[in-house]
């Protein structure tokens, strides 16, 4: 009995929550939201550009390193060939 009456009281209190008025948002809120979203969009664009720049720089760096190795190994091979050639020429001269 007591439980029932307290339950009813609680229901009545909760029904009072209906009376809380819904308010209109402040008029400048719409503009603030749109401004924030635009700001975010521009930020993402800027960041995308930044990442693109970083990726391009990395690619160029990697290509330069590769070119350096290609050139140095080629030069070493040429040097070896010259040394071999000079060695065989000297041998020939001695033999003669």
């Amino acid at each position: 009995m007591k439980n029932n009456s307290s339950n009813n009281l609680m229901n009545e209190s909760l029904d009072l929550l209906n009376s809380i008025q819904k308010l209109d948002p402040p008029p400048q809120l719409f503009d603030k939201i749109m401004l924030k979203v635009e700001h975010q969009r521009l930020y993402h664009e800027k960041m995308d550009g930044k990442w693109l720049g970083i990726a391009a720089a990395l690619l160029i760096g990697l290509m330069s390193i590769e070119m350096y190795f290609i050139v140095t190994t080629k030069q070493q091979k040429e040097k070896q060939q010259i040394v071999q050639l000079m060695g065989s020429t000297q041998n020939n001269l001695y033999n003669e």
């Binding site: 819904k22 308010l23 209109d24 948002p25 402040p26 809120l29 603030k32 939201i33």
Partner: peptide
């Protein structure tokens, strides 16, 4: 925006905070 603003108000009871949450 009205739905979001009022729901936020139910949680925080402060118009300034509700505005921030709506954004």
């Amino acid at each position: 925006q009205k739905q979001v603003y009022n729901l936020a108000l139910h949680y925080v009871h402060s118009p300034a905070d509700a505005e921030e949450i709506t954004q």
